[in-house]
Nucleic acid binder design. Structure first.
Lengths: 320, 320
DNA sequence: GTGAAAGCGCTAACAA
DNA sequence: TTGTTAGCGCTTTCAC
């Protein structure tokens, strides 16, 4: 058994409450005894049991972070930023992956509920109603999901989509394929809504698609067949997979078809062709979400982060 | 406040211990009352507080998983496999990223110590001695680190390195650059050791390198200058970064220099040139590590997983 | 400034 | 089969 507060108390002949105070309210204890306690604690290798502490205080100093797919490079940058920010505030963040499964997502939230002081729910797949219900158990901050009354960090997906589509239009593309994401994705809906409002374009919708490289590869034949010369994909992984699929069919990108993704993940910057994409501020989102969660004031604060188009090599003039 | 065991007990007129039993040892309670309890629990939305339970049982049913850099795609596949395996055994796994910083690693382990039943320590940067000390606080399973007496899942890095070097030699390369990884990395040491024993090669060592794409990009000039025609990199990220750097210097891969990585991550399979690499069984490792952790028997069990060379487009004949 | 005592939510003997 | 009691490690009144 690990050493507890009792061992320390015994070791320096004080009561447990004194030891407790030494750690949670040091100013309330005589410097002399405080030092004695500290020395003994150090000596015995004592570390307060956070779980036990949480039982009385109700605060764990842990945060939960739930993502749909940790293998999507978009999330790791968000995660790292969140962890760094939390660390600076003496919090730890535990990450869990739902594997795109809403049931796992729910289960995870419930598991986290009693073990963390709040959870960052990133790109959830659960319904709004379910999220609202779970919010009774534990405070949330949403990332890329809008629910009335709940704090959220959003990214301006609509603007990104418009920029991307304008870029394509400017290159002479008219018939454009839109690859949507998984059901339940707010981002995907925002993207489609923005696109639908763009005038003068001939949009073809494909979806829902798995938000992965293989999801992109899988729609390649349909995209090729539909006659579109430009594509806006749900995210970079889908875009990259699509390019793979197209290339395998000997359809050149951007010669025959131009492709734009969302996120600006590393793999898109590597290899050929480099991906034109809408940069999403994942790291900033991670940081701000932690802040929002920790400053419980500002209850329903909603922050919208800017996005921007990064033109690289996967888009070019339409060949008519 | 969330509903507790007491609320349920009161709601259906039984003692708390009966409620407790309904959840932890249902066979010990009368089916009739069991159903009554279950109904009341369901009704009140009661869920046992795992942290409180852990206080008495000593088991949290949580596992910790610590990685150096969650942004390296190698880890997510390990993580996902570990989470899936754990879920099947009714465990949850919480992930944390050390940012390649040994001090963060130590802090994280200490934080986890009381909140999980064991931790998977993946590619640690801490010294063996430190790990041994921390192992007194919480059970470990190491991944890609060998410490006497501690259970571990290893990958046959030595074989991988030999295969890679033989492949290069077979293509006529003699002068080969070896890009090592971060200090404290077991994998890096294994790789170097295996390489050093290969006869007939003219090895040039570079390192330590940051195990990232930018680490690879940074050594590109030196590699180009050293006259090597072949390169074995610490991991795929480094290899990919190197290729970027070389390409930027107008040095073709594989025309002028052949490059091999380690891991077989997704970005290496995307874009051009596709990376020749040593496949590391990340998912299998994640699964086995969880098993090792949960079946506390087999104490110091050490499992070594096979590796294999995957030849793609980044290697070719040496041009002499 | 320190100790005593109660209690956080739960489980685990032990009785009944 | 169920209730009683004690206690996990810690914090927090309340006295002293």
């Amino acid at each position: 058994m690990a050493t507890t507060i009792k061992d320390v108390a015994r070791a320096c002949g004080v009561h447990v409450s004194t030891v407790s105070r030494t750690f949670s309210a040091p100013h309330l204890v005589n410097p002399a005894t405080r030092n004695r306690v500290l020395a003994a604690a150090e000596d015995l290798g004592y570390r307060p049991n956070r779980a036990a502490r949480a039982l009385t205080t109700g605060r764990t100093f842990n945060l939960g972070l739930i993502v749909a797919d940790i293998a999507n490079p978009f999330f790791p940058s968000l995660i790292k930023a969140a962890q760094a920010q939390a660390r600076g505030r003496d919090y730890h963040v535990f990450v869990a992956d739902t594997d795109e499964d809403p049931r796992v997502e729910e289960e995870l939230i419930r598991t986290f509920a009693k073990q963390v002081d709040g959870v960052l729910l990133c790109s959830p797949r659960l319904s709004n109603r379910m999220i609202e219900r779970l919010a009774e158990d534990v405070p949330f901050v949403l990332v890329n999901r809008r629910i009335k009354g709940m704090p959220a960090v959003l990214m301006d997906v609509g603007k990104g989509a418009r920029l991307a589509l304008e870029h394509l239009a400017g290159l002479g593309h008219r018939r454009i394929a839109l690859l949507s994401g998984p059901p339940g994705s707010w981002t995907s809906n925002e993207m489609q809504a923005a696109a639908a409002e763009m005038p003068g374009l001939d949009l073809v919708f494909f979806g829902p698609n798995q938000p992965t490289e293989s999801g992109g590869r899988a729609v390649a034949p349909e995209v090729a067949a539909c006659g579109a010369t430009g594509v806006l994909a749900y995210n970079d992984l889908v875009a990259l997979g699509l390019i793979e699929g197209l290339t395998a069919m000997e359809i050149g990108v951007p010669d025959r078809i131009s492709v734009i993704g969302f996120d600006d993940i590393l793999p898109g910057r590597l290899g050929r062709p480099k991906l034109t994409t809408v940069a999403m501020p994942a790291a900033t989102a991670g940081r701000m979400a932690v802040d929002l969660l920790l400053q419980s004031e500002g209850e329903g604060a909603v922050i919208t982060l800017d996005t921007d188009l990064i033109v690289r090599e996967s888009t070019g003039r339409a060949n008519t």
